[in-house]
């Protein structure tokens, strides 16, 4: 999954889609995941990076990442034409 190219991520946790004018707020871990996606990291790589950085386990992040990615898809922040 890839983030739309022109999505603007700000360190305040503000996310802006210039394509349709939508804006969102994310928490710090959410922001780090969006940045990973922007860099083109795979889901696996993201998961491992989160496990590396945070006090969590594989099962938890797997569930939560699944949910988070579904949300950004629903919010039209992902690129369909890969």
């Amino acid at each position: 999954m890839k983030l739309l190219k022109n999505i603007a991520l700000s360190d305040t946790g503000f996310v802006f889609n210039p394509g349709n004018g939508d804006s969102f707020s994310v928490n710090p871990i959410g922001l780090s995941i969006l940045k990973d996606l922007q860099e083109g990291k795979s889901e696996d790589a993201i998961r491992n990076r989160v496990i590396e950085d945070y006090q969590t386990d594989k099962e938890t992040i797997e569930k939560d990442l699944y949910d988070f990615l579904k949300m950004i898809e629903q919010f039209n922040l992902t690129d369909y034409h890969e």
Binding site: F14, S25, V26, N27, G30, D53, Y54
Partner: peptide
């Protein structure tokens, strides 16, 4: 030290 985990959240600004 690893950071405290919190579920990633995203919310539309309405």
């Amino acid at each position: 030290k690893k950071q405290i985990y919190e579920r990633p959240l995203i919310q539309r600004i309405n």
